[in-house]
Structure formats: structure tokens, C-alpha cells
């Protein structure tokens, strides 16, 4: 059991959540982080979809890594990711039609999420199943918590709701003259919120600041 979850394994999960975060440090997968974070629910569904696609893709590629011909390895990776995404899309359409409608093209665009291809090529192609799975899980969570955090801020201040439900205390605020900030709903504010997270992260860990 000890070798099953060592310090190194923990690092595989913890690093992408923090100092190796795909969005805030590596600046990958930004497009979807900007586009679908107006509502918490969408961010959660997107996160679940990415977790599923990443862990499955990494596991499959890791299992096949010694059999994949080198010349077509990128195509094989793409094929695996694309079919998993198509699978997710079908399942959402059948079981969560409203979320599927809201996310529309962005589910399909998971295929182009740089984080996934990046981890497949950089990690799963050269590591064993368990490590690849953990690495994918860590990166997917690292992507997901940023998404959820941004969506939380945007939905709360943009629509005065969370998960689509009104916040009880807000009615008093409205009486006091508070208004929802419509700017929060627009894409630029996602960039600003992500920027704020990056700022916080770097002020906590000075090693992350580039010297120039």
C-alpha cells in the first residue's frame, strides 16, 4: 500500500492544483475558463466532463504507450480524446439536456483543451497507468477549481445567484441600492477574475514570479 500512494504520487496531484496549475501558471485551457464561467452549474458540469475525459484519456494512452507507433502518436492521442469527448457529449444530451444546451459547443471544444493533449504527450506517453491517472486527475482538478472559483464570483456578483438559486440576503442589498454588475457576465471579467487569482497565487509564493 505504501508504494501505492507515495510522496511522489501526492505531488502528482498537488502540484497542478497549486504551483503547477494549468490555467494560472501554465496558461493552458484559458478559452473555456473564460467562456463557460458565467454560471456555477456550467462550470461544475464542465469540470466533471474534463475530469472524465482527462483521466480516461491518460489511462488509455498510458496503457497503449508501448504499442503506439511513434509517427502517428499525436493522431492516436487526438482520436482517443475526440471519441471520449463525443461520448461525454452524447451522455449529456441524453441525461442533462439543459446543461448540454448551455455548454453547447464548449463540450466539443474540450478536444482542443491544451491541458489534455499536453498531459498525454508530456506524461502519459512515458509513465505507468497509475501515475498517469493521478497526473490527469491532478491537472483536471487544477483546471476545475479555477473554473469553479471564477464561476462562483461571476454568478454571485453578475446575477446575484448561485447554482441558479437566488441568495436570500440579496433582497436586502437590493433595497439598499445594490445592483448586480452586468459586466461580470461578459467575457472580459473572467479574464480579470483569473488575473486576480494569479495575483493572489504569486503574492503567496514569490518563486512563481518571473525575473525580468
Amino acid at each position: 500500500m505504501k508504494s501505492f500512494f507515495t510522496k511522489q504520487h501526492q505531488k502528482l496531484i498537488a502540484d497542478p492544483m497549486g504551483d503547477q496549475n494549468p490555467i494560472t501558471i501554465q496558461v493552458l485551457g484559458i478559452c473555456s475558463a473564460l467562456a463557460i464561467t458565467t454560471q456555477l452549474e456550467n462550470a461544475l458540469v464542465m469540470t466533471l466532463a474534463v475530469i472524465f475525459v482527462m483521466t480516461s484519456a491518460s489511462s488509455i494512452i498510458s496503457l497503449l504507450r508501448n504499442h503506439i507507433p511513434n509517427r502517428i502518436r499525436i493522431i492516436v492521442q487526438l482520436l482517443v480524446v475526440a471519441s471520449l469527448v463525443a461520448l461525454v457529449d452524447q451522455i449529456l444530451k441524453a441525461f442533462l439536456p439543459d446543461a448540454s444546451e448551455q455548454l453547447s459547443v464548449f463540450i466539443g471544444l474540450i478536444i482542443t483543451n491544451c491541458i489534455i493533449m499536453g498531459r498525454l504527450e508530456a506524461f502519459a506517453m512515458g509513465n505507468k497507468l497509475w501515475e498517469s491517472f493521478l497526473d490527469a486527475l491532478g491537472n483536471a482538478f487544477g483546471y476545475g477549481w479555477i473554473l469553479v472559483a471564477v464561476a462562483f464570483v461571476r454568478e454571485l456578483f453578475g446575477s446575484g445567484k448561485l447554482m441558479g438559486y437566488e441568495i436570500p440576503g440579496f433582497t436586502y442589498l437590493y433595497d439598499l441600492g445594490y445592483m448586480n454588475n452586468n459586466l461580470m457576465i461578459l467575457p472580459p471579467m473572467a479574464l480579470v477574475v483569473v488575473g486576480l487569482i494569479i495575483w493572489m497565487q504569486r503574492s503567496k509564493n514569490n518563486d512563481l514570479i518571473e525575473e525580468n
Partner: peptide, 17 residues
């Protein structure tokens, strides 16, 4: 080998989807 691998992959994926 490359061709065979590609063909098998596509068949498997196509069937599943």
C-alpha cells in the same frame, strides 16, 4: 504496423461511439 494500428483504433472507437 502503423496502418494496422490505425485501422484497429478507428474500428474500435467507431463501434463504441
Amino acid at each position: 504496423y502503423t496502418f494496422l494500428f490505425a485501422i484497429i483504433m478507428v474500428l474500435v472507437v467507431g463501434t463504441v461511439l
